[in-house]
């Protein structure tokens, strides 16, 4: 029992409060109620003033500002997206234009080349024709001169033959005879 007594005294020394308080609930000690309520009221008023005057308007403003910023940013992003789409469309348009332009230029060049080729061909044909007629003329000339030569040779041969046979060749009759024979 002595240990128990010692323990109780030790406890009593640790907490120098009256036995009634220690046994019951301090929550039900009504003598402290006015004190608690008084300080609670002051605490609540201080917190309320802090919140109502400073903290809540400030946080509310920050939240509203952030909301506004986010909305603006989203709108700006939307706008930029539209711009990008427009740019892409313009780019595609330019590309298509360039393609058709290139095709047109190719066709034009082809036509030009064809025209040049046609002209060159025509010119070459003309030159060939010219050359051919020239050559024909020369062939005719040569043929004519050949006939002349044959006449001369025939006359000469006829004269020599007549002379060899002992006759006296009459130049005019020989020529007439050769001419007659040449005429066929």
């Amino acid at each position: 029992m002595s240990t128990a007594a010692a323990a109780i005294t030790a406890v009593a020394a640790d907490h120098p409060t009256s036995a009634t308080e220690a046994a019951g609930m301090p929550q039900l000690d009504f003598s402290t109620y006015p004190n608690q309520i008084f300080w609670l009221a002051i605490a609540l008023i201080i917190i309320y003033l802090m919140l109502n005057r400073v903290a809540l308007p400030r946080i509310g403003a920050v939240l509203a500002e952030r909301k506004g910023t986010i909305t603006n940013d989203i709108a700006a992003a939307e706008e930029l997206k539209m711009k990008a789409q427009e740019a892409e469309k313009a780019y595609n348009q330019a590309l298509a234009d360039a393609r058709s332009e290139a095709a047109r230029i190719v066709a034009e060049a082809k036509a030009e080349i064809q025209a040049d080729l046609d002209a060159a061909t025509a010119e070459a044909d003309a030159q060939i024709g010219e050359k051919a007629t020239e050559a024909e003329a020369r062939i005719g000339e040569i043929r004519a001169s050949a006939v002349d030569s044959v006449t001369i040779v025939a006359k000469d041969t006829a004269k020599e033959l007549v002379a060899a046979l002992g006759g006296k060749a009459d130049a005019r009759s020989v020529t007439a005879a050769v001419t007659a024979r040449l005429k066929g």
């Binding site: 406890v11 640790d14 907490h15 220690a22 019951g24 929550q27 000690d29 608690q36």
Partner: peptide
């Protein structure tokens, strides 16, 4: 054992 669970609430 000295159990005084309510001591902490003393004002």
């Amino acid at each position: 054992l000295a159990i005084h669970p309510m001591h902490q609430f003393l004002i």
